[in-house]
Design a binder for these strands. Structure first.
Lengths: 253, 253
DNA sequence: GACTGTGAACCCTTTCACAGCC
DNA sequence: GGCTGTGAAAGGGTTCACAGTC
């Protein structure tokens, strides 16, 4: 390895770490709540508590975006809301299609969190002809046959797959070839996509299985720790989605 | 600092990294599919492809569980299914309650993936008296008033929160004080819980926002790369499927 | 010859701790 | 005095590459 690995991270421009990106929506949510309560500024400590992270991490995260705070004072809530929204690309709104309007698809269509944050459900698509035309959440379901046309007519680049596992790859392929480049997958399957397409997956049963692992471990330790103080009860950090380490302060509304 | 964290990693016994735990369900799913097709053995390469990870990672993961493979041959599918199930605590079945039977709660109740993998929906709970007694997915909805009794009678230690954000913390507190020690939270709120309670969260709108960030970045790069070769078009990783081996020694001009 | 199991290197993330600024 | 911004240290996780085994 004598060769120089010429890879400049370029800290100052487009180098926001993935872990930070994943937390920006969390901060945004906390900030939006503060904004609605007309709170003008927050300290990193307060905002971190509201978002369920620690303050050092939050400050580090914000430092990747730029210097948006004021030393001795804190962060201007409105300004930060704007900066984070812009960074996440939420100042434009994104048309989204949901494919697979079963229980889950319908729940997603009805989910208010989409519309409120820069996303617009442009269409609902299902393979069942019986559903075609029926409105779900006020939007008529369209048939899979028209998938490509729907994607193109609406300029959709983000698709949500809520079909059964068996149909997911096929739907994915069609979405991608119609121009979708980001997919949120609820079907319990690994999707393969070409380079340049992002997939994020949400798998309910995997989340439960991870909990079961920890639950079992707790039960096991309990049996072992006869007279140990309860505080020895392990540091449970769920790596990625993990909510935090400790949020000792209870804050009732 | 230098706090006596009396927890020796002890590679050979109980030291499975969190990142590995989070992938075990993925492997289990792929293995179950192989098992149903009566495939007797798999190589790390094949299984890794099916699970959407790379083979080195998979082998490393399995090495934390023990030496369950055979060099030159691969892994015995049935045996691995059993070992991983046991490790995840899925050889027992876990009674689960779902609180909040709106669209999402109903979708969860109907979701087949629970029952098929060691979880049993012990009860559905909602605050709406109009729902009480109505069956969802064949299970009658019970009223929140009886939450504590339901938890205790069924020995529930895992709870799923699918309520609106405003009710989530309150529900969480009641679940915890009734004895629940693992929570899967679908409400868009940070829950605070005492030490020893695990929380995992699934937030639909956060996932979309992360996708939007990457989507925006793609659009930006596209605009920038006027005459650049197409090969510069992002090295995105999503579901890791990389037959990599190629380290970019190229200098972007 | 084929494939697992694993130390070592590498890289990403978190945490610490303090300089810098209001 | 209070709080941000950030180098530096520490900690995990991933990848490499090869020794070990069938």
């Amino acid at each position: 390895m004598a060769t120089g690995r010429t890879h400049r991270p370029a800290t100052r421009s487009r180098g926001i770490p993935e872990a930070t990106v994943a937390r920006l929506p969390l901060y945004l949510r906390a900030l939006t709540a503060l904004s609605e309560r007309s709170v003008p500024t927050v300290s990193s400590e307060e905002l971190a508590a509201a978002a369920g992270v620690n303050s050092a991490k939050l400050r580090k995260d914000f430092s990747y975006l730029g210097s948006y705070g004021t030393r001795g004072v804190g962060y201007d809530v409105e300004y930060l809301v704007y900066q984070i929204s812009r960074e996440l690309g939420l100042t434009q709104d994104w048309p989204v299609v949901i494919v697979g309007i079963g229980n889950l698809g319908a729940a997603l269509a009805n989910y208010g969190g989409f519309a409120s944050r820069g996303f617009r459900v442009a269409a609902l698509i299902d393979a069942d002809p019986a559903l075609a035309g029926k409105p779900v959440a006020g939007i008529p379901v369209q048939h899979t046959d028209d998938l490509e046309k729907i994607i193109k007519d609406n300029g959709v680049s983000i698709g949500v797959i809520a079909t059964p596992a068996g149909a997911a790859q096929q739907v994915c392929d069609r979405l991608v070839s119609a121009g979708v480049t980001s997919i949120l997958n609820f079907a319990p399957t690994v999707l393969s996509v070409p380079d340049g397409v992002d997939v994020r997956k949400v798998d309910l049963s995997i989340e439960l299985q991870i909990l079961a692992f920890h639950e079992q471990r707790k039960a096991g330790e309990e049996a072992l720790t006869d007279g140990l103080p309860a505080s020895a009860a392990t540091a449970q950090e769920s790596t990625d989605q993990g909510p935090d380490g400790d949020v000792p302060a209870v804050m009732p509304a």
